[in-house]
Computed example of a mutant assay.
Amino acid sequence: MGMEIEGLDKFDRYLLKKAQDVPKESYKIMRKLGTVARKKALTRGKAEVKKIEGDYQRGWKRGKAYRASDGSYRVKVYNSSMQAHWIERGHRIVGKKPEKKEHGFAKGKFVLDKSMREFQENEMVDMIGDWLDEMLDKGL
């Protein structure tokens, strides 16, 4: 006894397409996904960036859910602090004003990239699956 995975994938895609026809519900799940993704980034940021106080930890935000021009629903997770891009991508280490001599390069932590990959691999699929089950129970 077994189940055909290909048929299940087509059915899931069909359900997702039908569920996107209900914009209120789609925005709702995107907000939930964004909130969980923001929390993932915050916890990874606290673990990888040693300085706990400061704007970096308080800067994690979730934007509004919106519908893109291609018809897909999206939500933005970002860090609004000034130093966030330096921590994410890395930066030069430069001395004081008179000489401004470069002392090296601080490698980037890639906090947001790592946490979003982890979230997509682990939790996002489960959350969307549960949401599709709820939509089926409601009668879609």
Rank of each mutant, 00 (worst) to 15 (best):
K50P: 03
S80D: 11
E53T: 13
R38H: 02
R89S: 11
R89E: 15
R74V: 08
R58P: 03
R44M: 05
G45Q: 00
G59K: 03
V49W: 15
E88H: 05
M82F: 07
G54A: 07
K61E: 13
R67F: 05
D70S: 14
V75A: 11
E53V: 14
G45W: 00
S69K: 09
R62Y: 05
Y27K: 03
A47L: 12
G59N: 03
K32V: 02
Y66Q: 04
A65R: 01
N79S: 07
G59E: 04
K32I: 01
A41M: 08
Y66A: 05
E53Q: 11
D55N: 11
K61V: 09
R31Y: 09
G63W: 08
Y56F: 15
R38D: 00
W86R: 12
K50Y: 04
Y66T: 06
K39N: 11
E88D: 13
R89Q: 12
D70N: 14
E88S: 06
V75H: 03
R74A: 14
V49Q: 13
K50N: 06
D70F: 03
T35H: 09
A41S: 07
G63Q: 05
E48P: 01
Y78L: 13
K46V: 05
R62P: 01
Y73Q: 07
K61S: 06
D70A: 08
M82G: 04
R74L: 14
L42T: 11
A37L: 02
K61C: 06
Q57D: 11
Q83G: 09
A37I: 00
I29F: 01
K50F: 08
A65L: 06
A68Q: 08
I29E: 00
A68H: 07
D55S: 07
Q57V: 09
Q83I: 10
K61Y: 10
S72A: 12
G63T: 11
R74Y: 15
I52V: 09
Q83T: 10
G45A: 04
K51F: 13
A65N: 05
G95N: 09
R92A: 05
G95M: 05
I29D: 00
W86H: 07
V77K: 01
